[in-house]
């Protein structure tokens, strides 16, 4: 199977108050295209840092991140932005919708950035898929948490990403809403054939993926296939 993401000898250190903080070290794994994966670990284990590095939001201190064959370490921030725009989708714990844009406009932004055609129709279509066709003109503050996360899902899929990063997508939602959102996430993912990388400490959610990578103290401690894989 084709590899979409290859992590080799990845390390990240922070300078803080004169001390070097070793957040991640010697992480190695690769992700197959079209697979669903979960990175799990307790709070402070470094999983969010790992996500940031994988998605090209940050620079690594050591090792390499290769996304779709591109070594992110060699790129400038603007070039990485370009990579994100073309290959990467994001879902965040606190939704991260632009508060000043309507739901529809939020979905449209990645498409607009790519200068694509029929943007509005495609965005409406995506909103319809997440069941919010009639809420397109609402601002994020007028939507419930679940609705916001669904808009966020629509946005994440709008640019047909090759890989989707989700950071605790249900962290801010109640159980019932979580379930709906998760179902939607996996359905859309399946339909688009996107690679999914989910960061969570919710083992129940992680179990829905094909592979679970466990992190603790900045190190990879386990990498196992689930029953789905």
């Amino acid at each position: 199977m084709e590899t979409i993401l290859n992590i080799s000898d990845l390390g990240k250190t922070y300078q803080s108050a004169g001390r070097t903080l070793n957040v991640l070290h010697d992480i190695n794994f690769s992700i197959a295209a079209g697979s669903t994966n979960a990175i799990v670990g307790p709070s402070g284990s470094g999983k969010t840092t790992l996500l940031g590095l994988c998605a090209g939001l940050d620079r690594s201190s050591a090792g390499a991140v290769e996304l779709n064959g591109i070594n992110l370490g060699n790129l400038t921030e603007d070039q990485r932005a370009q990579v994100r725009n073309q290959y990467v989708g994001f879902i965040f714990q606190n939704f991260q919708l632009l508060p000043t844009l309507t739901a529809l406009e939020n979905v449209m932004v990645p498409l607009e950035l790519r200068n694509e055609k029929n943007i509005r129709a495609r965005a409406l279509d995506l909103l319809d898929k997440v069941g919010l066709a009639d809420r397109g003109h609402h601002y994020p503050s007028q939507l419930s948490g679940g609705e916001q996360q669904r808009v966020s899902l629509a946005r994440a899929f709008s640019n047909s990403p090759k890989i989707l990063f989700a950071d605790e997508p249900t962290g801010n939602l109640d159980a019932e809403t979580s379930e709906k959102v998760v179902k939607l996430l996996f359905d859309l993912n399946k339909e688009a054939g996107t690679t999914l990388i989910l960061v969570t400490h919710d083992l129940e959610l992680a179990a829905k993926t094909q592979r679970i990578i466990r992190i603790k103290g900045g190190q990879l401690i386990a990498d196992e296939k689930t029953i789905n894989g």
């Binding site: 932005a81 994100r84 725009n85 991260q96």
Partner: peptide, 15 residues
Amino acid sequence: IASIAIMRCLGVKAS
């Protein structure tokens, strides 16, 4: 800042 960060995430260049 938050909005800018989101835009940057979605691929908007710094400039």
